[in-house]
């Protein structure tokens, strides 16, 4: 569960949400996607993540989180602020409660796209995990976060939306 302490967020129950959140009435032309490459590194046991987002979305989301206008190009503590945002919205946890700590590696932000790189601690032994990517759900009801998970020699793609956002997968060693 995402836990935010910002004052502009309300915790409300599922009952209140009903069917209204994912209104299709949003203006049609901007569409909202992100793409994540996740690879399990059996040597370290960690998940190595490259997350590609539309920088305008990132700027908007961070501005909202910080409750001020943020310009990514001029932000002195860009890594810290990106990490704070992503840590709340991108999770990989095992069903046995292992791992899950996010370690920031860096970011490449240009006009066209922003790549965010980070590791999430895992386990060197193969096991069962759940991945959860909720970036920009607070901005866009039509947000679609595509996640490609590579573990061993297999690749799987998940599409995380407000409606479907947690995906189980298995880590395994290459054959």
């Amino acid at each position: 569960m995402i836990s935010l302490s910002r004052t502009d967020w309300l915790g409300i129950t599922l009952i209140c949400v009903l069917s209204f959140l994912s209104s299709p009435l949003a203006a049609s032309h901007p569409y909202h996607v992100s793409f994540a490459e996740v690879e399990w590194n059996p040597k370290t046991g960690n998940f190595e993540v490259g997350l590609c987002v539309w920088p305008a979305d990132l700027e908007k989301a961070i501005s909202k989180m910080e409750n001020r206008s943020v310009d990514l190009d001029k932000e002195a503590e860009l890594s810290a602020i990106c990490k704070a945002y992503v840590a709340n919205r991108f999770r990989i946890v095992s069903d046995k409660g292992r791992g899950g700590e996010l370690r920031w590696v860096g970011e490449q932000v240009d006009l066209k796209q922003a790549w965010l790189y980070f590791e999430i601690t895992g386990d060197q032994n193969p096991g069962n995990w759940k991945i959860d990517n909720r970036v920009f759900f607070e901005l866009n009801s039509d947000q679609l976060n595509q996640i490609q998970v590579k573990t061993g020699s297999s690749r799987t793609t998940f599409a995380s939306t407000i409606e479907t956002k947690r995906f189980p997968f298995e880590t395994k060693l290459s054959e």
Binding site: V17, S19, F137, E138
Partner: peptide, 22 residues
Amino acid sequence: EAQLAATSSGIDRMSFKQLQGM
């Protein structure tokens, strides 16, 4: 129909603005 056919997110937190719009 657009309102009724829209499906629920199951999201458990939302912003004031989203709630206001809803």
